[in-house]
Write a protein that binds this DNA or RNA. Structure first.
Lengths: 337, 337
DNA sequence: ATGAAAGCGCTAACAC
DNA sequence: GTGTTAGCGCTTTCAT
């Protein structure tokens, strides 16, 4: 079934039918109704591919994320999807699996589809401008989120990770901790570095000693939270608190702590970056830096829509400020000697 | 940049360049290399939309799910994405938000995009064949998953929910429980009905009395697990165990149980449908019916690829058998009088 | 092994 | 208001 048949059936030309379908251009009310009725009757559904090619608008948005399975990105996608739906945009989803090589191939695939816009959260490896050259060259509007590129600033939505790191550390300091360990994110990411910077800033401001051996570089994955926490608990006897820089690693830390039969905060205090809805539901009291993720997804989508409207690369940055939720896991209960 | 420019630069015709890009048809080795080199040099990326229109193959697969945010569907998508990647297929993702009205609109949008295949998990409302008529009429190969249509069988991957319901109930009976409540899924779904059927089957076989007041119709959402559990704990004093028919409702149940300061299994035994990775990690011991979800996602994708290859509607059904993981939450500790 | 030409299903000037 | 016509950027016969 194509537009030509509708034209024949209705007695009008292809263009008139096209105008009805696209709902633009001059068509008399009666004509419109007549054509609409026929479309309804024969269950005609226009070919979006042909429309895209002809109009040079794909009405499609590509979302590129590092890991579909991660509930954080699930929530982001939910927010994006919500806005895209309302704007009749289709959503292509790609996962790079935190792999910069796969990411490169994904970029190529994405451009082939000629989406009207691109949303991208880069993989955890160190990224410079040249790593997204294909996207830049394509001229397609895009917005970054969460993770930043080192040598240039692009339109995007990011979190104030320095503030988050600061708040978490400050909470521990205010509870009386002196010897605070941190399990960071990878130093190849702005997020990893900024949260650490927040930690250092808080320690300095409050006149606490920053000791290199209290800094453990993690990689944002479960195992790294588990292993580093074990190390801390075994080697660093004076440590009374740990600031863990994301939720996956916190889950790993919880496992390590449980295996050692330690209690939070009695034996070890912690603050986590990123709240997890299950913490609350399951009655696990972990103080955490909190971000409204679905809402952020909506922000990201809106920013992209703006870029698409102006077909620009505005380099506009939206910074989302995290907050701290206290649930007593940060308390200092006994001082180790 | 289009194919014509590559043709000019290389001195060959559009057709030859096209053959190189599609890697099909006769092209001499030297010609191919020459053209490939030029494509590389000028960073030419073919227009997938034009290719789709011309070749009548979109290389795109649409995945329609009820709720993107639900980690169950996140895991499924991960599995699907894995297989689609390997087959160079793009993935369009649509969420119907468990809303049959939105679902209808989504179907329309999906067909417009002329995907090469469709993967669909219907929303929780009662579905008959007519509700997916648009898809059927389109002629596009599709596979259903998890949730079935009442009046006809279509190609798909489903779980043996009767067996799952049976295993869960049997575990409780074997632990010595007599008075077992069940919080079911909605009766508008095969899943809800089948899990209940499994429950009844186990009760009958083991000569336990099935009492209507032990059957609570839930809706698979958190609140319904919470509310129904509260009801059970308050009204049904003789109940020593609850079989909760999905993981979201189990989270709700856990909250209700915690609010009443009851212990599992000391005060109330439970078995949950669907394991949750966080149960284990967070040290929450809940016996549960387990399914390998990401693996299932891969099965689904493979089944669709088969359908696409044969461009058929085979009505082939794959049934995935769930298993039971026991973690002591099913134990009978004290008998109520 | 390569090229010429028609056409995929639609949109968008432009003409009337 | 409506129709005519020329593409959109490719693929795919059919020649040669």
């Amino acid at each position: 079934m194509k537009i030509e048949e509708i034209a024949k059936l209705s007695g009008f030309s292809k263009s008139t039918v096209s105008r009805v379908i696209s709902n633009n251009g001059y068509v008399s009310k009666e004509t419109k109704e007549k054509i609409l009725k026929i479309i309804e009757e024969v269950n005609y559904i226009p070919n979006g591919i042909a429309r895209s090619l002809s109009s040079n608008k794909s009405n499609t948005v590509a979302v590129i994320i590092p890991d579909i399975q991660n509930s954080y990105f699930g929530d982001i996608i939910k927010g994006i999807s919500n806005i895209m739906d309302k704007n009749n945009l289709h959503m292509l989803v790609y996962s790079t699996d935190e792999n910069i090589k796969k990411e490169k191939k994904v970029f190529q695939n994405v451009i082939e589809q000629r989406p009207s816009g691109i949303i991208l959260s880069i993989s955890l490896q160190y990224h410079k401008k040249k790593d997204i050259k294909v996207l830049l060259d394509s001229g397609i509007p895009f917005v970054l989120f969460d993770r930043q590129i080192f040598d240039e600033t692009f339109t995007g939505v990011f979190f104030d990770d320095i503030k988050g790191g600061y708040l978490a550390t400050e909470a521990l300091i205010n509870s009386g901790h002196e010897n605070i360990a941190i399990i960071t994110g990878p130093f190849s990411t702005t997020n990893g570095l900024n949260r650490l910077e927040g930690y250092k800033k808080a320690m300095l401001e409050k006149n606490k000693k920053i000791s290199e051996e209290n800094i453990y570089e993690g990689n944002f994955h479960f195992d790294s939270g588990y292993e580093n926490t074990k190390k801390i608990l075994e080697k660093n006897k004076k440590t009374t608190a740990i600031f863990i820089c994301n939720n996956e690693m916190t889950l790993g830390a919880l496992q390590a702590i449980r295996e050692k039969n330690l209690k939070i905060p009695d034996d070890i205090a912690i603050v986590s970056y990123d709240n997890h809805k299950y913490f609350e539901i399951l009655g696990i009291n972990i103080s955490a830096i909190n971000r409204d993720i679905e809402e952020t997804g909506m922000e990201i989508a809106k920013l992209l829509l703006e870029e698409m409207k102006n077909s620009s690369r505005s380099k506009k940055i939206v910074i989302v400020s995290p907050t701290l939720i206290l649930r007593n896991s940060e308390k200092l209960v006994k001082i180790k000697d």
